[in-house]
């Protein structure tokens, strides 16, 4: 469904070129859930933004259902079937939760359907549907609304950047259930995460290191290696 071919993104820093992404290539099949993990600054979020079209590639190609989307705008990629949940959700003065959810839905929404998405992420729809997306919402509430909005897109491919960030312990299991439910319905997901519980739902895991893909494989193979890397990092004091 999604194919990245030698995707690179580089910037100029103090007169020198620096790669944020370097020759990243992998494929995602329909119905697959891929977890991307790795150190801070390894290029994970940039990779997501490149797939969504928020950051342009410096070189390489991106194909979605065999269509070359490398030069497409963000909205065209969204219309084609890619949804994206921000790591840090955006606040809007005046816009309400309902406005965002109905905009996200492709078809004319019924209130019941909109409410279902909020319930999926553990929010009582009645309490939230008319809330403003401003400073009156906590970071965790906003994050869950962001995830609900992404599910509401009903997109072929969902991108989630650290969905667990800011989610309290009580809501965490609900989040895992929401992902599992989406998986059971045949959804395709790419999720950036550091959480072992979330990694547990992966079909495959991609490990990023210093702008490149350092490991990729089935979750059962990669997960133990990721765990041992993290143990080493802890011993070295990196984590």
């Amino acid at each position: 469904m999604l194919r990245l071919e030698n995707v690179s993104y580089k910037i100029e820093e103090n007169g020198k070129e620096r790669y944020i992404l370097k020759n990243v290539s992998f494929e995602v099949a329909k119905g697959e859930t891929i977890i991307i993990t790795g150190h801070n600054g390894s290029g994970k979020s940039t990779l997501m933004k490149v797939i969504m079209g928020i950051i342009p590639v410096s070189s390489g190609k991106i194909y979605f259902n065999d269509v070359d989307i490398t030069e497409m705008t963000i909205s065209d990629r969204a219309k084609l079937g890619i949804a994206y949940a921000f790591q840090t959700p955006v606040r809007f003065k005046g816009l309400k939760v309902n406005d965002l959810l109905t905009t996200a839905q492709k078809t004319n929404s019924k209130l019941m359907e909109v409410c279902n998405y909020l319930s999926k992420v553990g929010l009582c729809a009645r309490d939230y549907i008319n809330r403003e997306l401003d400073d009156s919402l906590s970071g965790g509430e906003l994050k869950r609304i962001e995830i609900a909005t992404t599910f509401a897109r009903g997109a072929e491919l969902n991108l989630f950047d650290e969905p667990e960030a800011g989610i309290d312990l009580w809501s965490f299991d609900g989040l895992i259930s929401a992902f599992n439910e989406n998986k059971d319905e045949g959804g395709t997901n790419i999720i950036i995460s550091h959480q072992e519980k979330i990694m547990g739902i992966a079909d495959r895991i991609v490990v990023m290191d210093n702008a490149e893909v350092s490991m990729i494989g089935n979750a059962t193979e990669i997960l133990p290696q990721v765990k041992s890397i993290r143990v080493c990092a802890k011993l070295k004091g990196d984590e």
Partner: peptide, 16 residues
């Protein structure tokens, strides 16, 4: 208007 607000809504399929 904050650029990230525009980007968020564009990821929902709206044009700028």
């Amino acid at each position: 208007i904050a650029g990230e607000q525009l980007i968020k809504l564009m990821t929902l399929g709206l044009c700028e």
